[in-house]
Each structure stands twice: as C-alpha cells, then as structure tokens.
Write a protein that binds this DNA or RNA. Structure first.
Length: 476
DNA sequence: TTTTGAGTTGTTCGA
DNA sequence: GTCGAACAACTCAAA
C-alpha cells in the first residue's frame, strides 16, 4: 500500500443501495479506495424481533448490492459477529483511516454505534455518520422551545418546513483496496439460523435495489395519485408496498419523497405517511424507553389478560371476526398486510382481547417483511392508546363496522378466508347472524366451517373501557 | 407564566 | 337512514 493512497470503509446497514447514499458518497469523496462492508450482527439476527422473512429479503438484497458493486469495479465484503469487532478488525487489516455509515435512530443501533466509534477511535480510525435512513435527522426537528415533539401535527408542520438535502447520484465507479482480504460469500438463510421464510417466497416482494426502484417507478406513476381515496380499501391494494424498501434502505426516503411530490391529495397524504415514519423514529430517539413499554408509563398498569388460547386464535386467524382473520392469515401467507388491516387487528388484540400490545408487536415483527421497530412500535402504541399522540382509549374499533366500511363487497375477507367464499356481502363481516338454513346454503355453518366470535364485541368493548378507566390517575 | 386551541385513521346512542 | 353529540378529561404546542 502506498502512503499516498487513502482508504475508507463504507459500512452498509439499513441503507442497502447505491442511489442517494450520502455515507457512500462521502467515503468515495474522502478516500482513494473504498471497501464496502456488511456485517451480520448476531444480536439482531437472534434478537427478540428477528424475522425469517426479513432475513430472506436482506440476503437477496445483499446479493443484488454485491452484483451492483461488481458492475462498478467494486465488491461487497461480508463479515459476521459483533460489529465493533468485525468493523474494526477489517479496518485495521486494510489500513482504513475512516468508516462511513448512515445513521440509525433505534435504541440498539445507537448503543452499537457508540461502541463502534469508541473501538475505532482507540485505533485512530474515524467513524463518520451521514444521513440517509430518514428524511429528517433524529434530533433535528424541535419545537420553538427546543423540545422534541410528541404530537404528530406540530411535528409534521416543522418537518415540512425543514430544509432538505439534495438527492445524490449513484456512483459510477467504486475502487476497492488493492490486495484486500477475501470478501466472503453470501450466507444461506440456514447459515443465519432460519429454516426458511415463513411466508411463501413467491408471495414476498422481490429483493434488491433494482426491484425496489421499479416498484417506486410504478407507484409514482400509477397508484400514488389515487392513494388518498384507496389506501384504506382492503380489497383494492391502494398502498405503496414500499415498506420493506424503506426499512432496509433499498430506497432513500428523501428520494421517495421527491419522486412522490406533485399536486393533489394522493402525494400530500403519502408524504404525510413518510412523515409518520420519521416521527416514530424521532420519538424512539428522544424516548427510547418506549421500545420496551408504554410511552406513557401509567399505561404499563393496564391489567392485560394472559390468554394463550385467545392469542393463538388471533395469530392463526380464527377469531370468528372475518376481517381480523383475513388480515392475520394474509400476514402469515405473505408477510405483509395493509395499514388499515394492521390497525384493525391491533385494536382487536389490545382492546377486544385485552392482551398486551407487546405480544402483538412481537408477532408483527416476526412476520412482517417490512417490520420496522419504530414504526411498528408507534403503530401498536397508537392502537393500544398507550403512546404519543395516541387515539383516546375509549375509541375501540368495531371489527364488523370496519369490515363493512373498508371491504364493503367482502372481496378481501373471501380471498383470505375461503370458508366465507359463498357468504353474501350482507353477512360476510358477521356470518354468525345468518339463519341456520342460510349458513348451510352458503357452506359456512358457524361452529363447524367457521368459528363463532371469540368474544362478543359489545361486551369486550365494555371490558376494555373498564380496564383502561381503572388505571387512570383521575379515576376513583 | 398563563391561557387557549387542538389533537390520523371511531363508535354508539338517541333524536 | 341520517345526524349531532357524547365519550372523559388530558397533554401538548404556541401565542
């Protein structure tokens, strides 16, 4: 190695892309030779929120990143272990002067990066963090009093007013260090400890940046303009389906926001959803305790029921409420469900079944190909009325009314609950109301072909209201 | 410091 | 069937 040649590592984490990548761009600007690296972190792969579906999506996306880098004379180095050790060992081995990475606002990621920075600093290696996983950097959106926001609407106003960085080009060439060690091969899912994705692979989104970019192209040119009217319609598929691409950073949220601009309600409402993603990441940055318990600690006292059978009925999609069961079966089959369905099943678990929302949060993280700690946690706490800017606790979704409103023809429930295939629309969200002869004619006898409701919604609602009221400090 | 207006996504009840 | 009010007070953000 010549003394005149400077070297850096570009450490990929939740930014598995080449387009609009500030950390990679900074590394390439600062160093003559850049070594792209991904580290399989056993803490994440085996942690409480590990997911075979996301691991599958990650592996496919890393394969894509490696081939994209190779097309640019580069490569992708793969290591496994504790990041502080793996990154610093490789940095020393190749004589890197700096390590560049995109910031990650999660509680574990912050601790990990503090440790990495310290270990690198002890060896005289700089650790530089760039933006790239959120539109606005955590800590950058504050009220006039300098305090973080815990209500969405004022956050949204400040977020819209904040300056935005420019979208960056993908590099044309990535020159890697001469004589660098073996890059290593992409492991199998089994190597990472997973038998296989829990969803059917042909129903999971195609991994990789190229596939994500074509999803973005299609979304920006077709679905986006009708997003506002169609996002909640369960049978329509009016949402972007870009969640996994944003979670893994196959797409930069800044670029997605720029591509999805324009007049009309569709772009406006979609941009606000990107803002929600930032909002919940900022909330966890400022209040990391929310990752483990209620944002408002008083709600840790809700008397949740321990009911493994009811929880299993919920995860299996056999609660007897068609829209809940359809959504839970879709989740298991394809590793995804639309946001409206997430709200319905979350409300059902937390309110109708009065089961701790954290059990539902964990189930979602195990299954969702787009599972994201901050967004998932924020959504669950919203549904359970325990979070920032939560819905009032006395709002309890009625699963029949939600079904009738957002799946009026019943196409969604019939697709995922085939027992209901021949039930007429007027009964399809409450099949137990069919007279016995109608049940027989529809091939859906309650208690035989399809379960009766696991709880009576009206009674369950009263139970939830009582339970939540009981822990209010003002109540007597 | 005090005050005031506002707060993603609903449901139920009674007129 | 449609409509408005009640739900139950609370916290936040900003004037």
């Amino acid at each position: 190695m010549s003394a005149a040649v400077s070297r850096a590592i570009a450490w990929f984490r939740r930014d598995v892309r080449l387009h609009d990548h500030p950390a990679l761009t900074a590394a390439l600007a600062a160093a003559d030779e850049v070594l792209p690296l991904f580290v399989f972190d056993d803490v994440l792969l085996g942690g409480r929120f590990a997911s075979a579906n996301r691991a599958w999506f990650l592996l496919g996306s890393l394969t894509g990143l490696r081939s994209d880098l190779r097309e640019r004379d580069g490569d992708l180095w793969l290591r496994r272990g504790r990041p502080a050790e793996a990154v610093s060992a490789l940095a020393s081995e190749v004589g890197a002067e700096a390590v560049y990475a995109s910031g990650d606002a999660g509680p574990y990621a912050r601790r990990r990066d503090e440790e990495v920075e310290a270990v690198l600093a002890a060896r005289g290696i700089r650790f530089q963090v760039s933006p790239g996983t959120l539109v606005a950097e955590p800590g950058s959106i504050l009220s006039a009093a300098g305090r973080p926001y815990s209500v969405f609407t004022p956050f949204h106003r400040a977020w819209e007013a904040a300056p935005r960085r420019a979208v960056l080009q993908a590099p044309e060439r990535v020159r890697v260090p001469v004589g660098a060690p073996d890059p290593g091969s992409v492991p199998s899912l089994a190597d990472l400890g997973f038998a296989g994705p829990t969803a059917s692979p042909d129903l999971l989104p195609e991994p990789g940046e190229a596939a994500a970019r074509s999803r973005l192209d299609r979304w920006a040119s077709t679905g986006l303009s009708r997003y506002a009217e169609r996002r909640d319609l369960l049978a329509v598929g009016g949402t972007s389906r870009l969640g996994q691409d944003l979670h893994l950073g196959l797409l930069s949220p800044t670029e997605v926001l720029e591509r999805c601009g324009g007049p009309g309600d569709g772009p406006r409402v979609y941009a606000s959803e990107l803002c929600w993603r930032d909002f919940y990441a900022h909330v966890l940055w400022h209040w990391p305790h929310a990752a483990r318990g209620s944002f408002r600690p008083v709600y840790d006292a809700v008397p949740w029921r321990n009911d493994p059978e009811a929880f299993a009925a919920w995860t299996d999609g056999r609660t007897g409420y068609p829209v809940v069961d359809a959504a839970m079966r879709q989740l298991r089959a394809v590793g995804w469900m639309p946001n409206r369905a997430r709200m319905i099943v979350a409300s059902f678990l937390a309110k109708d079944l009065l089961i701790d929302w954290r059990a539902g949060e964990a189930h979602f993280m195990a299954q969702l190909v787009d599972g994201d700690l901050a967004s998932n946690n924020g959504g669950w706490q919203w549904a359970a009325s325990t979070g920032t800017d939560a819905q009032p606790y006395f709002r309890v979704f009625n699963p029949v009314a939600q079904g009738e409103r957002f799946d009026p023809e019943g196409g969604y429930v019939r697709r995922w609950v085939p027992e209901l295939a021949r039930v007429a629309a007027r009964y399809v969200h409450a099949p137990w109301t069919m007279a016995p002869d109608v049940q027989r004619q529809a091939g859906c006898v309650i208690g035989q072909d399809y379960p009766p409701p696991i709880v009576d919604h009206a009674a369950a609602r009263e139970r939830a209201l009582f339970a939540y009221r009981s822990i209010r400090p003002a109540s007597s």
